[in-house]
Simulated assay, not measured.
Amino acid sequence: MSRTYVITGAASGIGRTAAEILTARGERVIGVDLQGVDVSGDLSTPEGRLAAAEEAAGLAGGTVDAVIACAGLSIPKPITASVNFFGMTEFLEAIRPALTRSEAPRVALVSSMASMQPVVPSLVDALLADDEAAVDEIATRMAEDPRTANVIYPSSKRAISRWVRREAPTERWAGAGIPLNAVAPGTVVTPMTKELLASDEGRALTDAYVPMPLNSHQGPESIAHLLIWLTSIENSHCAGQTIYCDGGADAVLRGEDVWSWNDATMRETFAEITAGLQD
Score class of each variant (00 low, 15 high):
S2E: 07
Y5S: 06
I14Y: 00
R16T: 03
A24H: 02
R28Y: 03
G31H: 04
V32A: 10
Q35L: 01
V37R: 12
G41N: 04
G41Q: 03
S44R: 10
G48L: 02
A52W: 00
A53F: 01
A53R: 04
A71H: 02
S74V: 01
P78L: 05
T80D: 08
A81G: 10
N84F: 03
E103C: 03
A104L: 04
P105L: 12
L109T: 15
L123D: 13
E132R: 15
R141L: 13
D145C: 05
T148L: 12
A149Y: 02
S155K: 07
I160W: 04
E171Y: 00
G177K: 04
I178H: 09
A182P: 00
V189N: 09
T190I: 08
M192E: 06
E195C: 00
S199I: 02
E201H: 02
A204D: 12
A208C: 00
S216I: 01
G219D: 13
G219E: 14
S222R: 10
N235A: 09
N235T: 06
C238V: 15
C245T: 11
D246A: 11
D246I: 09
G247S: 09
A251C: 03
T265F: 05
M266E: 13
I273P: 01
A275C: 02
Q278I: 08
